[in-house]
Design a binder for these strands. Structure first.
Lengths: 335, 335
DNA sequence: GGATCGACTAAGAGCGCTCTCACCTGGGGA
DNA sequence: TCCCCAGGTGAGAGCGCTCTTAGTCGATCC
């Protein structure tokens, strides 16, 4: 297919430089050689435009310098509006670039792609795997660990196997948000929770309940799936359940934006009638009307940390298998 | 590093099945063998859990089954809010999955990463490359073509080298939007153009001018960079330049959303005082207040088409080197 | 019944690299 | 002067696969 089918090889560089293959290999890999060899090899490399063949190197070293990021969500959802995944990709990409690794993106929506991913990884195709946003007790981390490949997740696994992970303080963040509402004198504080088969959904609800437990307030809960539409629907449900509510903690900014619209349609003013706090601090949060008070989680940093942890594992280093990043309440106009 | 350092090879499968390596290879690659061989090989493969080594295969076939998607934007912008890139990735990923190829994502912000990408591609690391969202006369497509690797861009190149591309009807879409404003009786129609070193920015401005040329209206132009903030700033500028304007065509939805906010702050009602039309039809467009009338471009389809074209090239097939996808005016509340 | 044909299979030569190990050569100590 | 010790080098053996070239065997044809 390629026009230039035959690229120069180590052999041809060696011939041109008048040294052996091994010496060229040493130069390429930065091992010590005499200055004379060094120079003639470098000249030959430049003249021939030599670039090492990656497959040949991989075959013997068993390193591919490829790192996979697996997003096991239905792809439509991964890439609709939610800037979570782009953010993670961004962070991951920064770290991998620094380590001179390539990023292989695997979107695993269907069963078939699950199988495909397992096969591809078993074929020694990548050196390590990051798994983001697992649902329920996904069998993938266990399967990959069994194959013997380094794995790092975002958030702890819901399954029986424990896998190193990078998480955020969901419970603490949610609790801080609810305390903020309590401190402001709100009395009927509802929540729109995230999906209960994901750590983010579960833990933020836990944080909400924890914070409420100390007070005399009862909990009012609706559940969404992190999308804007589900947030609007959940908000309408809450208004029906308890028309007198005066605050809502929403487990994601996208859902909070949906809730904001539902509140507006219902004629409630934010924050006067109902205070609203989101979670994530996506870019959109600063541009809603009113701007959204929210719990910031360091999305890009999650990606960076995952990559960093994984690179350690790939290099055979030990890591503390749990990293939990802090969350922070960002106060804007909505509460 | 790996726990299971030695995975079964073709050799061991052959030994177990009592046939030669070549026969196993045939079974693995779906070539005809006798039923007896077929069965014993398949049993051996299952028992050993054999998976072909990718590097070894690549070394001889010179195919990696890896396709790169290069996004040569500063990464911060690529992955801030703009759902264009996630959409393209989504489309690309669908097609590649169907063709059993893996996607390598390369974010090329800096000069250094440009070099890194060229090297990696020269090392026969990937079978083909998709380039999205090039700025100005980027040297990358020419460089890759010189290496002899199949390349497909989104939108035509601004440089001297012509590369196969998948574009959209920017001119037609923009013109349709402006005609819609003219038909509604708007008289002072401004535009917020995109960056003038990108096809999307250039062609949408051309479409605006084309549509206006027929009428007696003069053009009123501000330029943004496709971000929300730049849209707001450009809108303020326009209001200063011509306080009497009654319509704006904005070259991206994100900028249009920014413009919407600037108009609100300036006390103009949309669409009563000022009609507004965006471009892209991102998910957000349906949720602004009022919902945004916009020109839809099929973002996911761009990704799919790029992938499909590239796969043809990789397989040595000829393609028509230009695909232009239609755009469509979506009328909502803002105009 | 022997030659011919077709359909499979076995063996072997690489693909381009790394890595081990033996070898060389020059410098310093005895 | 001789020997020993390094650091540096070269030859060769793979890594696991594909693909070409022979070769085998059973079935068909005259």
């Amino acid at each position: 297919m390629n026009v230039q089918h035959r690229r120069p090889t180590l052999e041809s560089v060696a011939a041109r430089a008048g040294v052996s293959r091994a010496t060229v290999s040493r130069v390429v890999n930065g091992l010590p050689v005499t200055t004379a060899s060094q120079e003639s090899v470098e000249r030959a490399i430049a003249e021939l435009g030599y670039v090492p063949n990656h497959a040949a190197r991989t075959l013997v070293t068993r390193r591919t310098d490829l790192i996979a990021l697996v997003l096991p969500e239905p792809t439509t959802r991964v890439f609709s509006d939610d800037p979570f995944f782009p953010g993670v990709i961004h962070g991951v990409s920064q770290e991998l670039e620094a380590a001179d690794k390539q990023l292989v993106l695997m979107l695993a929506g269907s069963e078939a792609s699950h199988t495909r991913i397992e096969r591809s990884i078993a074929a020694h195709h990548v050196d390590g795997v990051m798994l983001a946003s697992l649902h329920g007790a996904d069998p993938l981390p266990a399967a990959l660990t069994r194959i013997g490949i380094p794995v790092v997740c975002n958030e702890r696994s819901l399954g029986p196997t424990s896998v190193p992970y990078v998480g955020v303080d969901n419970v603490g963040g949610a609790a801080a948000a609810v305390r903020h509402l309590l401190d402001a004198g709100r009395t009927r504080i509802a929540t729109i929770a995230g999906p209960q088969d994901m750590i983010g959904g579960i833990d933020r609800l836990t944080g909400y309940r924890d914070a409420l437990r100390g007070s005399s307030r009862r909990s009012i809960v609706a559940v969404g799936d992190f999308t804007m539409d589900s947030g609007a629907a959940a908000m309408r449900q809450l208004l029906e359940d308890d028309p007198a509510l005066d605050a809502v903690f929403v487990a994601s900014d996208l859902m909070a934006d949906g809730a904001l619209q539902a509140l507006r349609q219902a004629g409630r003013r934010v924050p006067d009638d109902v205070a609203l706090i989101g979670f994530d601090d996506i870019a959109l949060a600063a541009y809603t009307d009113p701007p959204l008070t929210t719990v910031r989680q360091p999305i890009v940093e999650i990606g960076r940390q995952m990559a960093r942890q994984l690179l350690c594992l790939v290099n055979g280093a030990e890591i503390e298998s749990t990293v939990v990043l802090p969350t922070e309440l960002v106060i804007r106009g909505s509460a």
